[in-house]
């Protein structure tokens, strides 16, 4: 399941140096838990995003390991410190080996 996966990230455009900002992320994904059955009673195989990371200029902000108990379209809200201008890099790792990436720049001012 790799079609129609769209990451959405909300990061402020600018911050003052050292400020703590709140980041919201959401990625559209089925997150098939491996518990459900189809109409014929066969178990639908698990297909989830199992890891999410956020980095700022190469330094780690948060690293989340996900299990099937995460809801469809996994959503995360967390805080990050902005020491300087740069790029936030968001990465989602799918069970099928796909990697979804999103980058957001932030300026100081």
């Amino acid at each position: 399941m790799a079609e129609g996966v769209t990451p959405r990230v909300k990061v402020p455009k600018s911050a003052s140096a050292g400020e703590v900002i709140t980041i919201k992320t959401l990625i559209s994904h089925q997150m098939e838990s491996g518990q459900r059955k189809d109409d014929d009673g066969n178990v639908i195989p698990r297909s989830i995003i199992n890891r999410f990371t956020c980095e700022f200029n190469g330094e780690n902000v948060i690293d989340i390991k996900m299990e099937p108990a995460m809801s469809t379209n996994p959503y995360f809200e967390f805080d990050a410190t902005v020491p300087e201008a740069g790029d936030f890099k968001f990465t989602w790792y799918d069970d099928d080996g796909s990697v979804y990436e999103e980058t957001k720049s932030i300026t100081i001012g």
Binding site: V20, I21, T22, S33, Q35, E55, F56, E59, N60, V61, I62, D63, I64, K65, M66, E67, P68, A69, M70, S71, P74, Y75, F76, E77, F78, D79, A80, T81, P83
Partner: peptide, 26 residues
């Protein structure tokens, strides 16, 4: 839950606060 683990949040050096929120299945 049939599989009890939900997730593990690991905070890096730039985490602004040791907190996070998400949505889960129960």
């Amino acid at each position: 839950n049939p599989t009890p683990s939900v997730g593990t949040f690991t905070f890096g050096p730039l985490a602004g606060a040791r907190s996070a929120s998400t949505r889960i299945r129960l």
